[in-house]
Structures are given as structure tokens and as C-alpha cells.
Simulated scan of single mutants.
Amino acid sequence: MRSARLKLTLSYAGFLLLAGAVLLAVVWAYLLRYVPDNDQGLLGISPNRYLLLRMFTPAAAAALVFLLAFGLLGGWLLAGRMLAPLTRITDAARLAAGGSLSHRIRLRGRPANEFRELADVFDAMLERLESRVAEQQRFAANASHELRTPLAISQAMLDVARKDPEFDRGELVERLHTVNARAIDLTDALLLLSRSDGRNFTREPVDLSLVAEEAAETLLPLAEQRGITLEVTGEPARASGSPALILRMVTNLVQNAIVHNLPCGGSITVHTEPRRYASVLRVENTGAPLAPELVPTLVEPFQRGSERTRTGAQTGVGLGLAIVHSIVRAHDGMLELTPRAGGGLLVTIRLPAPR
């Protein structure tokens, strides 16, 4: 199979040869106008024109040969220069196919052309892929560790019970139930995170104010149990997405605000409002002061915020805000975390409004 460079070279040479032939034909026709053809000579051609033909033919043939050679050489060099960016893009694609995502093309040159645009798009794709793969690798390592922990605890308790005949079976069953429930919660959270990342859901109209009221009503007993005031304010704010995922998103935010709050006398405000091109949901809660450098890490999987205050023993599985972030991203929205001056956290979510 002939390469693109060879095809371009033959195309350049063929076009140049054709243009040369047309030019020579025009010159020949022009010369014939000024050479009389009165007398018939050899082969029915006048002596003057016969002489002109003998002089013009070798020169024309030499010119055509020169044009062919020049076209092949020049076409080969020009094609190589034109296809050089494509070669770099191909090499980068081959490295990426082999598993190396750190390579970048970084094609330079002004003005920007189609190859430059293609290279920039390819570099951006590689950067996103590398970031995504690194994130997935960290997530897989953390998930394996988190899933291994309850299994290891269960194994240790069973070993102790097997070696100690006097071990309290009722206590064993109760502790195994607790550990198993935590493993189930973690598995459910991982499945939900995978579902939201895949964006395999049907979009429907959703009113964030109704979702906020439903989530608050569900978690109100937990908030009252911990002495936390929970309030829902605002106006109807319509968005488009999965009702189940958006409900889980708001529920996670409210539950997170309850768990990470003041030990007593805390408050939570859930506010919704429509904007011109987006619907806004804000969840604000009191709590311990948060270091600014800690806030961006809260959306990372299994980051429970070691410097945050938890009211009670419930700490979750470390995927609450990670699931929220994934759901927001799947709905093409924006998530913003802001530490409050007096302590606690303000979470602002903007989802595109239905068109």
C-alpha cells in the first residue's frame, strides 16, 4: 500500500507535468501563427514548420523531463514537510495506544492550521485521559483498601470466636452485622458512583425545591436527634436530569451537613433559586473551621475530612461528596465548596436550566 507521502508526491509531479505540457502546447500554437505554411514539404509539412518542429521537440521533451524530476523531488520534500505534524500526531497516538499517556505533541507554529488544531485537541484529550486514569487508579486502590477492611475485621472476629469457646456468640453476631452493613453501604455507594460517572440515565424535569424538601423531611429525625436546626428556603428551581440521582445528591449534602456539624446547637440551611441559565442549590451548615487547603480534597473519594468535627459516631464511607461531585459532573453542572468564616461549609451547586 502506497503511503500518503508517495501519493502526494505523485500528485504534485503529475500536476506540474500536466501544467508544463499545457504551457508547451500553448507556446507551440503561438509559434505556429507566425510560421507560414504555404509550401508542402516532407510529410505534408512546410520546410519552415518542419524545421521549427525539429528545434522545438527536443527542447519541449527536455523541459518535460526536467519538470517531472523537479516535481518528484519537490513534491517529496513538500509532502514530507506538510505531513510532518501528522507524523508527530501518529507517534503520539501510538504511544497512547501502548499505555503512555504522559506524552504531548505541543505542536507550535503560526498561524494555527488544521494540523495545529488537531494536535491541540489530541493533547487535551490525552491530558483528560491521563487525569481520569490516575483518578481511577487512586479510586481502585482506595476502594480495595476500604472493602478489605470490613472483610479483615470479620475474619479476625471469626478467628477469635473459633479459638475461644467462651466467646459471646450474641456479641459476635451483632458486631458481624455492623461490619457487614458497612460493607453493603460501601458497595452500594461504589455502584452509585459508577452509575453517575457513566451518565447512563434518562433526563427528566426536576424541581430542586421539591427535592430539597423531600431530602430534608427524610433526614429531619436525624437532625433533631443531634440538636441541629434544619431549614429549607427559596423558590422553585427547575433542572433536567435523573430524579433519583439528584435526590441522592441533595440527600448526601444534607446528611454530610448533619454529620459534620457542631456537637449541639448547629444549623443547616438548604436554599434553592432559579437563575437565567441555571438552577442553584445551596446547602450551608455550621461546624468547625475548615482549612482552605482541605476544602478541595473533600470531593476526593474516601476523603472524610480528618480535620472536620463529626456529631456522633456515624462517619459514612467517605464517598458522600465524591458521589455529589460525580452526579453534578454527570449533569453538566458546577460544584463549589466554600469554608464559612465562622466555621462549617457552604456548598453551591449550579445545574443547567431546561431549555
Rank of each mutant, 00 (worst) to 15 (best):
Y277P: 01
V317G: 11
S279K: 12
R308W: 10
L298P: 07
G305K: 00
A330P: 00
R310E: 13
L281H: 06
I268W: 07
A291I: 03
V270Q: 08
L321G: 02
T297R: 15
P339F: 08
V299C: 09
S306I: 05
V299P: 05
Y277I: 12
F302G: 04
T309M: 11
P292G: 07
R310S: 15
V283R: 04
L335P: 14
H271F: 08
L335W: 13
G305M: 00
E293R: 15
R308L: 14
S267L: 03
A341R: 13
G320D: 07
R308K: 11
Q303R: 03
V280W: 01
G333F: 10
L319E: 07
A313W: 06
G312C: 06
Q314C: 02
T272M: 03
G316F: 10
I327V: 15
E300Q: 12
G318E: 03
G320F: 02
R304T: 10
E293T: 14
R340F: 03
T315Q: 11
A341S: 13
G287R: 02
A341P: 01
P274T: 06
Q314M: 11
Q314A: 11
G320M: 04
T338F: 09
L294P: 08
S306P: 03
A330I: 05
R275I: 01
A288C: 05
T309Y: 05
N285W: 01
Q303P: 02
H271E: 12
P296L: 09
L294C: 11
E336V: 15
L337P: 13
H331D: 07
A313R: 13
G320N: 00
R276K: 11
V299W: 05
H331C: 09
L290P: 02
H271N: 12
P274C: 02
T315E: 11
E336P: 08
V299F: 05
A288Q: 08
R304M: 08
F302W: 12
P289G: 10
V280K: 09
H271T: 12
G318H: 00
G305N: 02
V295E: 06
A322V: 01
H271G: 04
S326N: 06
V295K: 09
A291R: 14
H331M: 06
P296Q: 10
P296C: 07
S326W: 04
E273Y: 08
E273F: 07
P301N: 06
T297L: 14
V324N: 07
I323R: 05
E284F: 01
G333I: 11
A278Y: 13
A291V: 01
L298E: 01
E336G: 09
H271D: 12
A278K: 12
T272G: 00
D332N: 14
T311A: 15
V317N: 14
R308V: 10
V283L: 02
E293A: 15
P274R: 02
A313F: 09
A322H: 03
R304E: 07
